[in-house]
Nucleic acid binder design. Structure first.
Lengths: 94, 94
DNA sequence: TGCTCTTATCAGTCCGTGCTGATATCAGCG
DNA sequence: CGCTGATATCAGCACGGACTGATAAGAGCA
């Protein structure tokens, strides 16, 4: 799930979709990447539940799902919180 | 930066460090990975500013930096927020 | 100082995965 | 229908990066 955000192009797609739903042709134009490449990444993101496809006639609009992103953000925030509370709990070596 | 959290072993290390600073031998034992592998990942995490090394005699304790993790969490949360506010701003295709 | 233990570094291999080119599918429109 | 344009799928290639084995560096202890 977090792995999906690791690839630069995929992160770029997500940032673009954060400005509102967009169709594949927009993403292709804005990123400069080839269309099959974008399509592949969108399939991966769809499979991870980060985006949904909304077909409108010939075009397919993709929408970023805020809940999924927020879930990841929450998990990381919780990790940070745990690290803060356990800052002094050093496990001693034998 | 986010890329550092993509690798499963590195994420595991970070989770372990969230329970408090630990030395390399602990991480080796808990993850079951070989020591050079752990050391390499720790160097990467150190380079990304996610952890710091605290040498204590022969041992080296590693500490997770909560601020770094929280920064990433904040960026993701902001992305989710933007997606929410721009949910209806669909860019029409020509 | 010599020995042991912990950690760091390096060279090499191997595998996952992102990119590309070709092609298929599908919707609208003449 | 046949054509055009948008998107999806697939096979092959290539490259980055994770893992391993050997080895070095450094600190404590006899």
């Amino acid at each position: 799930m977090i792995r999906m955000l690791a690839d630069p192009l995929r992160l770029r797609i997500i940032e673009l979709l954060a400005d509102g739903p967009a169709c594949v042709c927009h993403l292709v134009e804005d990123t400069g990447a080839k269309q099959p490449n974008i399509s592949n990444h969108l399939r991966a993101l769809r499979g991870a539940g980060l985006v949904v496809a909304e077909p409108h006639g010939r075009f397919t609009y993709y929408r970023l799902l805020p809940d999924a992103v927020e879930t990841v953000a929450g998990q990381l925030a919780e990790l940070a919180q745990r690290a803060r509370t356990n800052a002094d709990a050093r496990r001693e070596c034998p």
